[in-house]
Design a protein around this nucleic acid. Structure first.
Lengths: 112, 112
DNA sequence: TAAAAATACTCCATAGGTATTTTAT
DNA sequence: ATAAAATACCTATGGAGTATTTTTA
């Protein structure tokens, strides 16, 4: 659990792997292609393992890269989903309280 | 998938939630208690949701916090496991190649 | 030869440290 | 009264931009 690699790097990796392109990943992440290239190279150095095979006009995943992609894709998807839920629950909870309270009708008071 | 919250924050959160203590989390992460406190407050502001209930000498998770803990704990555990595997595979692979290559014995050449 | 990726800088935002105050029992 | 969390202020590291070079089909 400790000694996790750079989470920023993993995030960039996941996007690059999904697009099979550093350029497209850069577009999605709203950063430059250079930033993506550096993040991934750094990751490869930290792991001491190649994650991509560099080809003409596209990159492809090595076996290690494929493995890491499955893992990071699921992990980040799950975190994104949970984050969404947490954020969207906070408003409904408030509205529930408001809707079920007879006090508000009774007094005519409105919250904000 | 986009609009992920701060991954650094989530990492700090997972450790703090596991220990139910910002101080112990700081120790595990080799940072100060102040750093942990700020990361978590930032997350709570980003989500606009409380994640911890602050008590005397310990903190505890809110329902949203519990939900986020399950998600982040699993996500980071999986990433850590996969990272370990990728790294540990690279050495055996290399040694296999080296060991099974008669060429190396033949010529006496050693890779770096 | 043309596109995508790698590299060499420079800069800045954000993560972290120190010192101190606040909180809760 | 005391231990943990919050806050204020400052520093520094690493992530990002621009410009350029290298790679490969």
């Amino acid at each position: 659990m400790r000694n996790l690699p750079s989470l920023t790097g993993l995030r960039v990796f996941e996007v690059a792997a999904r697009h099979a392109s550093f350029k497209l990943a850069a577009d999605e992440l709203c950063v430059t292609q250079a930033a993506v290239s550096r993040q991934i190279r750094q990751l490869e150095e930290d792991f001491a393992v190649d994650l991509f095979l560099r080809g003409h006009r596209k990159v492809s995943l090595t076996p290690a890269g494929k493995k890491l992609y499955l893992s990071t894709h699921n992990a980040f998807s799950d975190i994104a989903k949970t984050s969404q839920e947490i954020q969207s629950e906070s408003l409904p909870n408030y509205l529930n309280l408001y809707a079920t309270s007879s006090f508000s009708r009774f007094t005519g008071k409105k919250r904000h």
